[in-house]
């Protein structure tokens, strides 16, 4: 059994009386110990997907169908009590902005140990463990820092504390929603290294949500590319980055800024061509308006999910090519 299995998940935001589709039959699975990155621009639905995993989605989100199975339990139909058991121990989360994700009124130590205490640790035991956790995420002088308030720490340190909270109960899956976007570049690299080290050490699965394919490349075994609420392409990180099949993946690869990521050593010959226009949420492929390779069919029918070797693709053009190669 896979650790996490998302099946045909569909959801819409209710904006006034209008419904805006945000996830269209999304399928995704994560194995134990596997690091998966979801890459996409804002509006692709990736953060909404992450919030559904913990059932902490915004009030105005309507889940219209599908299943989210975590160790066989469907989180969509689970009650509040079941969810409380999954949160923290089963799945934990790291949010984008470390400054707003810590409660300003409690010491960082308290915010780690309260989670431990509510899950069976004794008072002193929780405190000792919290100090150890601070040490393991690379906070210097953890005994002293235990009593610091969030506003006394730097952004990078706060994100380290958030990571300590996320690994506190040794969860099986950590969902990291843009964990490095609010940090400066050198801190970004450190945080990614920390996440990689910790997931390896505890054999924790990681679901990394990012708009930065460079970050995804550095911290994942598998990449899922999303656009307009659909999974466009999915496959092993190395393969997807070296040989993108979907036109949108090619576009993403061609437009990355040269950061500190290891991805820049790759030679890319992806097409830089992209048409003007907005992502469309109508009947057809969401990338239709922008796609340099679109055809008539792309505007009318949403592409099917097809499997090509290790890869899953949703694109009519790619499908046609596969069919031609087989013939």
């Amino acid at each position: 059994m896979r650790l996490l299995e998302i099946e045909d998940l569909s959801a819409s935001y209710l904006i006034g009386k209008r419904k805006e589709k945000v996830l269209k039959k999304v399928n995704l699975s994560i194995n134990r110990g596997e690091r998966v990155a979801i890459v996409g621009e804002s509006g692709s639905g990736k953060s909404t997907l992450a919030s559904i995993l913990l059932r902490l989605e915004p009030e105005n989100l309507l889940i219209e169908g599908g299943k989210v199975l975590f160790e066989g339990i469907d989180l969509i139909s689970a009650g509040e009590e079941e969810l409380e058991k999954v949160r923290g121990r089963g799945i934990s989360v790291i949010l984008q902005n470390p400054s707003s994700s810590l409660d300003p009124l409690y010491t960082v130590g308290e915010q780690i140990s309260e989670a431990l205490r509510e899950n069976g640790y004794g008072k002193d035991e929780a405190k000792r463990e919290a100090v150890e956790l601070l040490r393991s995420v690379g906070i210097p002088n953890p005994e002293k820092r235990y009593n610091s308030y969030p506003h006394q720490l730097s952004g990078g340190q706060k994100q380290r504390v958030a990571i300590a909270i996320a690994i506190a109960l040794r969860p099986k899956l950590i969902v990291a929603d843009e964990p490095t976007s609010a940090l400066d570049v050198s801190t970004q690299t450190q945080i990614i290294e920390l996440l990689n080290g910790l997931t390896r050490e505890y054999r924790t699965s990681l679901l990394l949500i990012t708009h930065d394919i460079g970050v995804a490349y550095d911290a994942s075994d598998r990449i899922v590319v999303m656009y307009g609420g659909m999974v466009m392409e999915e496959g092993k990180t190395e393969e997807v980055v070296r040989e993108p099949i979907h036109p949108y993946t090619s576009y993403l690869l061609s437009s990355i800024p040269l950061g500190n990521s290891g991805i820049k050593s790759l030679k890319m010959e992806a097409s830089r061509r992209i048409l003007q226009g907005n992502g469309s949420f109508a009947e057809g492929c969401p990338f239709y308006n922008k796609c340099p390779l679109s055809s008539e069919r792309c505007s009318k029918e949403a592409p099917r999910r097809i499997l090509v070797g290790n890869r899953a693709i949703s694109c009519w053009k790619a499908e046609a090519e596969v069919v031609r190669n087989v013939q």
């Binding site: 902490l56 949160r87 923290g88 934990s92 989360v93 902005n97 994700s101 509510e118 899950n119 109960l169």
Partner: peptide, 10 residues
């Protein structure tokens, strides 16, 4: 966010 995180940490 910190309320979300408080729930998320169990």
């Amino acid at each position: 966010d910190f309320v979300k995180l408080a729930k998320a940490k169990g």
